[in-house]
Structure formats: C-alpha cells, structure tokens
Amino acid sequence: MYTVAGRDLLTFTGPAFCRLHGPVTQEDASPVEACLPFAAAAAQPGDLPDGMVVLDLPGTLYASTVVDGAAAAFPDILAAYDAVASWITTHAFDFAGPVHEIYRRWCGEPGHPDNRLEIAWPITEPDGP
C-alpha cells in the first residue's frame, strides 16, 4: 500500500488502520482490510494491484480506547477490544460496522514499548439509522 501511495503521491489524512470483520484470535480467523486514509480532494491512486480497492468510508461516531506497549500486542490487546465492546453494550449503543485497529504509533515490532494503537468501533445510537 505504501508503494502505491508513494507512486501516486497520495496525501495521508491519518494513520494506517485495519478493519476487522469478525473475531481474530488464536482459534478464529476473519477477513481483515489494511487501510491508508488519503485526501479525496488531492491526488488519487492510479492502477491498483489485484485485491486493492479504494473505499469511501462515511464519517461516523466511534467508541474507542488507546493501548500502549505490551498492552498493544496480541493476546493482551484482546482486553481492549473486550473493553470497548462492553462499553458499547453497557451504554446501549449499537455496533455499526467492523472494528478499526488504528496504528497511532507503530515501531515495527509487536509489544514495543513505544507502540500506541487505538481500538475504535463504529457505533450508532439505539434509535439511529
């Protein structure tokens, strides 16, 4: 993705993130989308490799938490997912799409003490659309 972004001179609007479409644990696998947000009003990607697409994600409300260092590595990070999901349920919001794992600061290795990830789940009010 970074090769395509650099080739097409895309302007990033935020950090890289993944959208997880179901549980990802040692026992479960799920489709995962790796994403790089870029400015729609600036340069656009040209020829994309197979399997790479441009998505237009609508703005939405999120419930989130931030984890650092070892807490951002698997399996400890699962506690952050559970905490956000529990908060959503406890406060009677509705889940509104796949959870995002946002790489606020990534140092290249899981558990690095300087890593900072955000777990952000799209939500809607119980009576929302």
Rank of each mutant, 00 (worst) to 15 (best):
P110D: 04
C18L: 13
R19Q: 09
V53E: 12
I119Q: 01
L78R: 08
G51H: 10
L9D: 04
L20M: 10
A42F: 10
V53A: 13
S30I: 06
D28V: 00
E33Y: 08
F12V: 09
E27W: 15
P37R: 07
I88C: 11
L20A: 10
V32R: 09
F38A: 05
A96C: 08
G111S: 07
L9E: 05
P15L: 00
A63G: 06
I102P: 02
Q26H: 09
L20R: 12
M1Q: 05
A83L: 05
Q26T: 11
W121Q: 15
R7A: 14
A34C: 10
V4T: 15
T25C: 10
C18S: 12
V66F: 04
R105C: 10
F17N: 03
Y62D: 00
P15G: 05
L9K: 13
P31N: 07
A43N: 15
P49K: 13
G111D: 04
A42R: 13
Y103E: 00
F74S: 11
A5K: 03
I123Q: 02
T3E: 13
A70T: 07
A41D: 14
G69D: 00
D94H: 14
P126D: 00
V4A: 14
P122T: 06
I77Q: 03
L55S: 08
E125K: 14
C107G: 04
G108R: 06
D82S: 14
T65Q: 02
C107I: 00
E109I: 13
S86V: 01
P98R: 03
E101K: 05
E125R: 14
F38S: 02
W106Y: 13
F38Y: 09
C35T: 09
A16E: 02
V4F: 09
D114Y: 10
W106T: 04
F17A: 04
A79Q: 12
A92V: 07
R116Q: 14
L78E: 06
A42P: 05
L36M: 12
G51R: 10
Y81R: 03
A43H: 15
P31I: 06
D56E: 13
W106D: 13
S64R: 11
C18Q: 14
V54Q: 01
P31F: 05
P37D: 08
I102V: 15
E109G: 11
A16F: 07
Y62N: 00
T60I: 03
V32K: 08
G59L: 07
A79D: 12
Y103F: 12
L78W: 02
P37N: 08
Y81T: 03
H91W: 07
A80L: 06
F93L: 14
A39D: 15
D50Q: 12
H21I: 10
D56I: 12
S64Y: 12
R105W: 07
D114F: 08
I77H: 00
P31T: 07
N115R: 09
P15N: 12
A34S: 14
T65G: 04
P113F: 06
L57D: 03
L61M: 13
P126L: 12
D56M: 13
H112W: 02
V32A: 02
P58F: 00
G128K: 08
G6R: 13
G22L: 01
E125G: 11
I102C: 02
A79N: 12
P129N: 12
P31V: 07
I123S: 04
T90S: 13
R105Y: 09
